[in-house]
Design a protein around this nucleic acid. Structure first.
Lengths: 181, 181
DNA sequence: ACGCCCATGTAACTAGTTACATGATTTG
DNA sequence: CAAATCATGTAACTAGTTACATGGGCGT
């Protein structure tokens, strides 16, 4: 049982889902491809943590809808008593910024502009989703709200930072080419 | 050439360093163990991107100090012209929060308290480091500043979120046990 | 017609972690 | 006297990505 397995159980503890949907839902919190998820679900099923029923669809391919079992819930319960391991972030942009002196300012500027746009998109998408959730009756479980708020905090700060960084860069650029013409 | 290789080159473009030091410096931006770094450095050397000189030390074990070559700098230059891939974060805590209904509120509370303390520590450490850097003469390269500021933004937001989440949880806890005695 | 979305799976590979191995020096 | 730090490396494993494979429906 690795972290991704627990993550899948965690999603299933809120609602039954197909492997395909689990894959998309877990992306923002724990990136994983379908090729990793399908075998894990089979493994979880053979361990008795989940079970599936085949749902036949006419317009779309048939799917396996997985649901959590009492054994799965017990596994989550004991997992929750253990401390969480430290979060880790891998961001290629920061590695690039560290050696920015080696390249063209225009390239670095493009990288930062891309990041600004990315954060804006993510933030807008999240806020739309939070809006929907706030109107929902009955209100969604507290866990869901905490997650979405965490993502909102994160992208707000990422946006602020990247905008600030871009301003720093533009300042530097102006210093290097003062008084055009 | 994978991202970690470029990351090592990026660090070396600012200062020559031993594998051991590179390992510690790259941690915050791209977690990696020494067992991954040493073979990569050997590979980078055989590709002509870096070279090392043996530095004999009396009080500590001898070390190999790597420095970047013109070929390495050229590799960085072309890497900087390519777009950076999207950042990804893996945080076990969010997976745990998502299934918090399955466990005890006290356990969840402990998890959040741990996170609050963690963010506070990181933030304090960073701000001390930023303080040192601001006094430094000559000022450090812009890239370094951008990175440290990014980390500061990040831990500030993480701290705000985790404190907010903890308040939400305590509220919920009070609702469940109203008017003690 | 071409490509994307849905849906599931396996095979081959790369990336990353844990464990094994060694050994001196400093700190509690 | 035990544990941490410095320093390098390899071996064995787990985790994660890319590529291969299939196939109907839907939009342009």
């Amino acid at each position: 049982m690795n972290t991704l397995s627990y993550g899948l159980l965690s999603l299933l503890s809120n609602s039954a889902d197909s492997g395909y949907d689990l894959m998309r839902k877990i992306q923002p919190f724990w990136p994983a491809k379908h090729s990793q998820i399908y075998p894990l679900l089979a493994q979880l099923e053979s361990g008795g943590y989940v079970q599936h029923t085949l749902v036949v669809q006419s317009d779309k391919p048939d799917k396996k809808v997985y649901s959590i079992t009492p054994i799965g819930k017990e596994a989550l319960r004991s997992w929750l008593t253990e401390p969480a391991c430290e979060p880790n972030t891998r961001d290629e942009l920061v590695l690039k910024l560290y050696c920015m002196e080696q390249g063209e300012l225009a390239d670095i500027r493009r990288l930062l502009e891309t990041r600004v746009a990315y954060s804006q998109d993510k933030l807008a998408w999240l806020q739309a989703k939070l809006e929907v959730y706030s109107l929902q009756q009955p209100p969604p479980p507290l866990g869901t709200l905490l997650l979405m708020k965490k993502a909102e905090y994160h992208f707000e700060s990422d946006l602020s930072w990247s905008e600030w960084a871009l301003r720093q860069l533009v300042e530097r650029q102006n210093q290097e080419e003062p008084n055009p013409r």
